[in-house]
Design a protein around this nucleic acid. Structure first.
Lengths: 213, 213
DNA sequence: CTCAACCGACAGGTTGTCGGTCGATACGCA
DNA sequence: TGCGTATCGACCGACAACCTGTCGGTTGAG
């Protein structure tokens, strides 16, 4: 006897299953059949709710991105916290480890494997589109307060987000030693780019990122 | 009657066909059957020379990357040219349009489509691994000459390469107006990061990149 | 004669389609 | 109010079409 549910609910069930499977095996290695089995529905039902396998991926990434951007906006909007610290917190929202991720911790691990290039690219694009504007506003706020001095808030933010993204992935490679050095370089270069006072980022960074030393 | 060729030659024929097809339709949209037909060989022959479809992609990207890195190293080693200009020329080697690409102009266009995420990722990784060390050496040379002053040559180079890569792709989006602004920001921020004298990059850049104004 | 290079049928698996079925809800009517 | 029935969204599963990789067997150059 078959169970009928509201479309929105079924869709979410499918996305839940897809999330677990993609997290465990990756996108390419998961077949629509696997999703079918896990949800307990028939082939036709899946394609009643989604046009294609890729549309499932898009929907899932949209769901993940939405929660992350919400976190980022919350971190960015906390008026009680100084701007520098808010920027760091917002950037950390993008990182699965430091971000205290709501869901999809395992998804993020999969995302970094080369097998899941499509997933990775779509997530990163979502990040760029979603987070860059938020941080840009913070940078402009810092400019207005006179603690930053950059003529290119948007573009500078893009640079910072891209770099931190690549560093969080293992795309840049290197030993732990090199990674630590990368963090120091990131802090130093961020100060340069934003025109912030030398050392003004180090203190808040150390507070939020204790392992940096 | 069947034609027998040396393995290396056949392999190159297969890569040639793959290059054209990937350029026209992308990696995922090209089947091994398409490659078979174009080369005029049988299924078994293809898999005699390559273990899998993905190995074909890897070999092709390796071929493309090798030629590009050769160009980059040539540009970087030209002792008659000032360091700043060599850096710019080397970075431009990565760009299909400004780089006077040897082959694969169309490949690069495909690479930017989201469908070809795997291709894109593998190429970018090759770039990072291949070009970053070359430019890092140039930055260190500039440090030694006293025209740059950065404590993080490697990491700063990574930032610059990542950003220019993303800007060359359309990952950052935006109107032509915004893109022009991005180029200006790139020049300005590069000066900041390298600790170069303000304006010292603008002149060589304008010479090599006339459309910037 | 030997072996690298080649062949093509075939197994196994995948995505997406399509005609048809089921069940909740609304509706007509007594 | 109670009861057939019409409707339509949700669901089903067989199936077509395709795709990758394998394998035993063949060929021709040296």
């Amino acid at each position: 006897m078959r169970i009928v549910k509201e479309a929105a609910e079924r869709k979410n069930e499918i996305l839940d299953a897809a999330e677990e499977l993609f997290a465990a095996r990756g996108y390419e290695e998961t077949s629509t059949g696997d999703i079918l089995d896990r949800v307990g529905i028939a082939r036709g039902t899946l394609y009643y709710h989604f046009r294609s396998k890729e549309e499932i991926l898009d929907a899932l990434i949209g769901r993940l991105n939405r929660t992350m951007i919400a976190r980022a906006e919350k971190a960015a909007g906390d008026r009680d916290v100084p701007v520098v610290e808010r920027i760091i917190r917002t950037i950390l929202c993008m990182n699965p480890e430091t971000g205290g991720f709501p869901v999809g911790h395992e998804v993020m691990e999969q995302v970094h494997k080369p097998q899941n290039a499509l997933m990775h690219q779509k997530m990163q694009q979502g990040l760029l589109d979603g987070v860059v504007p938020v941080i840009t506003r913070l940078v402009e706020e810092g400019n207005a307060q006179g603690i930053f001095h950059t003529g290119y808030p948007r573009e500078t933010t893009e640079m910072l987000v891209l770099y931190s993204g690549a560093a969080f992935d293992s795309r840049l490679g290197g030993e732990p030693e090199q990674e630590a050095r990368r963090v120091k370089a990131f802090i130093h270069n961020t100060e340069l780019l934003l025109g912030a006072e030398s050392g003004s980022l180090e203190a808040p960074m150390a507070r939020l990122f204790p392992q940096v030393k």
